[in-house]
């Protein structure tokens, strides 16, 4: 059944429309002057003000490789992250560690490790899947470039972002 909406009967001064205009202007001008006097907090002025200090521990920014406390690269080129990466942003070419190397017993390391930041969706699956705790999502979020080539992070760039991570990290704690 159709519902008949009852329209309120307006008083004569309400029909004049001008009091409504004054009321409306009071609301809008209130907002206007509150903003001018700085009472209203508006959005962050992004390039000048940044929220970097308040980013949470579990923030998922750019993925990066880390070295351990002995400067050894943690990645053993198992290619699990390449395999799980949903947008296939990661490309790894493994190589054998030569026997005279100090870490020869590790056997494998990545020859090249490229993450295409145009494809990366910051899902963090690479971090979760990594058995060696070698890849982490850091807090860098403004990844920009003027060409496609610039947007592919190679191994050197990834270690630059990642830096050193000491000790074991419990990745599957409450926050993760």
């Amino acid at each position: 059944m159709a519902i008949v909406v009852k329209r309120p009967k307006l008083k004569w001064y309400e029909q004049l429309y001008l009091p409504a205009l004054a009321k409306g202007l009071r609301v809008t001008m209130g907002h206007f002057f509150n903003l001018l006097s700085g009472k209203t907090k508006v959005t962050m002025q992004y390039p000048e003000e940044k929220w970097d200090a308040n980013l949470p521990e579990y923030y998922r920014g750019a993925p990066a490789l880390v070295t351990d406390e002995q400067q050894r690269e943690r990645c053993v080129a198992c290619q699990l992250c390449e395999f799980i990466c949903p947008p296939r942003a990661i490309t790894i070419k493994p190589e054998e560690i030569p026997s005279e190397d100090r870490w020869a017993k590790v056997e494998k390391r990545p020859k090249t490790f490229d993450i295409n930041m145009i494809r990366c969706i910051y899902c963090g699956l690479c971090e979760e899947v990594c058995p060696e705790q070698a890849i982490y999502l850091r807090k860098d979020y403004a990844i920009t470039g003027t060409s496609r080539e610039e947007m592919i992070h190679d191994k050197q760039k990834l270690y630059e972002i990642g830096g050193v991570r000491e000790g074991l990290v419990n990745k599957w704690n409450k926050l993760k």
Binding site: H31, T40, Q45
Partner: peptide, 10 residues
């Protein structure tokens, strides 16, 4: 600018 201020924008 005024419309922005009225709508609490910049």
């Amino acid at each position: 600018r005024v419309s922005a201020a009225i709508q609490d924008r910049v």
